[in-house]
Amino acid sequence: MTTPMNDLILSVLSEHGRLPVSPESLGESDDLYAAGMTSHASISVMLGLEDAFDVEFPDRMLTREVFSSIASIRAALNELAAAA
């Protein structure tokens, strides 16, 4: 599924995720950590997402789970957009 939001998530993952594979090759629900994203890289991804989408993740959303797949990242961004 190509949407502006997904494209932006993929571009952040590609720039900050330091994944050994291309993010485009991953499924929506594939585990990004299992695909090789380190905890350190995941923090860069969070910062990249905050920057790209001009949002701030509240502390309760800053968990490993929320950033574990493209689908879970999109759900978190949608939740923030709905609350805005």
């Binding site: 905890s39 350190h40 701030e56």
Partner: peptide
Amino acid sequence: ETNASLLMVVKEG
């Protein structure tokens, strides 16, 4: 090192 990186995203509140 870990904390320095966590501090970039965690909000002090």
